[in-house]
Design a protein around this nucleic acid. Structure first.
Length: 270
DNA sequence: CTTTAAACCTGGTCGC
DNA sequence: TGCGACCAGGTTTAAA
């Protein structure tokens, strides 16, 4: 599932093929994604792509007079292909740039393609997003401050995009394992020292995943079409009952907020 | 305001 | 082999 690393790997993969190039056409085969693809997207031809940046799990394609907002949902992927490449099942959207095409495939259609001519950071989907975990401002003090008076568990806190963006289920689990923190620990109970360990673990896990090319459980495909490699290195995610790679204790699976949590009861302390 | 649950969607897996 | 039940997951929205 595309979390921050997969989106960042995608951004880096597609940017060289898009930046500075002119949009020659748009093809919408399936407008029914998370939200309907707006009509304005059909009229993008003629604009030039300036740059692509990432905010949380959103890709923001700067077209000069507005931004194309793309979210990969849970099964989306973007690839750059030669124009004219036949579309396959679940290929819902194309941005054509001369002899190249940026193609969105998304079997589960939880993704989104939107357009805004306003300040993109003030778009309703982006305006309430939290801190970027790879930024400088995300440090021990910041995490400590964010977690104060938070009654919920640290696992659920990490997955709340209004506090920290980009950390989904996989990396929340992996980060807590790396930091040695039990997922049921109340966020407000974390000491500054443990916040330091956790903020550091999050950065390390995300950076390692980006370096490895993003993870690929089922559907994620990098811009060059090759699956990422990170999934082979999970410490706890999807490893219920399997021995902890560090101490051998069987990994436990519990449910928090209707989502699966995996942890090592020996390595991770409350 | 906070917390929880439902909704969106398809493909894969499991039991029968 | 087929079929229904169920699960996975990011995010918003509705409901409690």
């Amino acid at each position: 599932m595309p979390e921050l690393p997969e989106v960042e790997v995608t951004r880096r993969g597609i940017t060289p093929h898009l930046a500075g190039r002119r949009i020659s056409g748009v093809e919408i085969r399936q407008p029914r994604l998370r939200w309907p693809v707006p009509q304005a997207v059909r009229q993008l031809a003629g604009r030039r792509v300036r740059s692509i940046r990432r905010r949380g799990k959103y890709l923001l394609i700067d077209c000069g007079d507005g931004h194309l907002i793309v979210h990969l949902g849970m099964s989306g992927s973007l690839r750059v292909l030669p124009s004219g490449t036949p579309a396959q099942k679940h290929d819902h959207f194309d941005l054509v740039l001369g002899d190249r095409v940026l193609r969105l495939r998304d079997p589960r259609r939880f993704g989104a393609v939107l357009w805004t001519a306003e300040d993109v950071d003030r778009h309703p989907l982006l305006s309430h997003l939290g801190v970027e975990p790879l930024s400088r401002e995300f440090d021990p003090a910041r995490l400590h401050a964010l977690t104060r008076r938070q009654k919920l568990s640290i696992k659920q806190f990490l997955m709340d995009g209004r506090r920290i963006v980009g950390v989904g289920n996989i990396y929340a689990n992996e980060s807590l394992f790396r930091a040695g923190i039990h997922p049921l620990t109340r966020a407000r109970r974390l000491s500054l020292q443990r916040c330091a360990a956790l903020s550091r673990a999050i950065k390390e896990i995300l950076r390692a995943a980006i370096r490895a090319g993003g993870s690929s459980l089922r559907d994620f495909v990098k811009a060059d079409g090759h699956a990422g490699e990170f999934q082979t290195r999970y410490w706890v995610y999807d490893r219920a009952a399997q021995p902890c790679r560090r101490c051998g204790t069987p990994i436990r699976r519990i449910v928090q907020g209707a989502r699966a949590t995996y942890f090592c009861p020996t390595c991770q302390k409350r």
